[in-house]
């Protein structure tokens, strides 16, 4: 079974009913099943049902993914992409992605890539948290921050849904909020009964944090309770993960 994916931002009018109807028609030409996942609203609907698509609560500038599964996914992808690029803004991972602009949060964002971690002889949870702490913008010593992370983990491991962890601290030692995204090729033991993780979203927030920042994080954590979202997030390439993360932080949770 072929799976193709397309990521895009809705325009200033969101997703209008005639557009949903046109997308439904285009889907009808193919055997592949297509679903629309609105990351910002945290809602996944089949594209062939335009009523459900409208009910997803699409709002202007929402970040969306199309999942196309089936034997003719390649062809369906081409056709749908053509329509989407005409009406919406396609997300391209090679283009400069601005996390601060997308999430609307004043913060320092950094991606810890697999190559950054290659130099390490052995990767485990505390070593990774050490690396994360070193990427955080702070006047304080990174070892101190690392021990704060580890202390937090002692209370309860911060695994959210499957494969996703959200280690976080709130401390006077940081002045600018930092968000560090790590995507691992292999699952890493996070010392939790909820299993190992591949996608680690680390956050170091100032204490007290601004209400916007706290709201953004509570939005995110409410969404990451959903198993499907966690799987999608863990399976996405790291640039797409960053865009999904920004979208989930930006929007108020529906629930």
């Amino acid at each position: 079974m072929l799976i193709r994916r397309a990521a895009f931002y809705l325009g200033i009018n969101g997703l209008e009913s005639w557009q949903a109807e046109k997308l439904r028609k285009l889907c009808g030409y193919f055997h592949a099943s297509v679903s629309l996942f609105n990351v910002s609203q945290c809602c996944r609907v089949p594209l062939e049902n335009s009523l459900k698509v409208m009910a997803a609560g699409n709002k202007p500038d929402d970040f969306c993914l199309l999942f196309i599964e089936g034997m003719d996914a390649e062809l369906a992808h081409l056709v749908l992409l053509d329509y989407i690029s005409e009406h919406f803004k396609i997300f391209q991972s090679d283009q400069d992605f601005n996390f601060v602009r997308s999430s609307g949060l004043e913060c320092h964002f950094h991606i810890l890539s697999a190559s950054d971690l290659k130099s390490l002889q052995r990767l485990d949870k505390s070593e990774l948290l050490n690396q994360i702490a070193a990427s955080i913008q702070t006047p304080a010593d990174s070892h101190t921050l690392c021990s704060l992370f580890l202390n937090r983990e002692k209370h309860a491991a911060t695994v959210m849904g499957p494969q996703v962890a959200l280690p976080h601290i709130m401390t006077e030692l940081v002045t600018v909020p930092s968000i560090i995204l790590t995507s691992l090729p292999e699952p890493l033991d996070w010392h939790s009964p909820r299993g190992p993780v591949r996608c680690i979203i680390a956050a170091a927030l100032p204490k007290p944090a601004s209400i916007e920042m706290i709201r953004a994080f509570t939005n995110l954590s409410k969404k990451l309770v959903d198993e499907n979202i966690c799987r999608l997030l863990a399976d996405a390439p790291v640039q797409l993960q960053a865009a999904m993360l920004a979208a989930m932080l930006a929007q108020q949770a529906k629930c």
């Binding site: 937090r152 959210m160 976080h168 601290i169 995110l220």
Partner: peptide, 12 residues
């Protein structure tokens, strides 16, 4: 302890 993630997850 931090009150930004697990409080809300557990409630959910």
């Amino acid at each position: 302890p931090t009150g930004i993630a697990h409080t809300y997850m557990a409630a959910d």
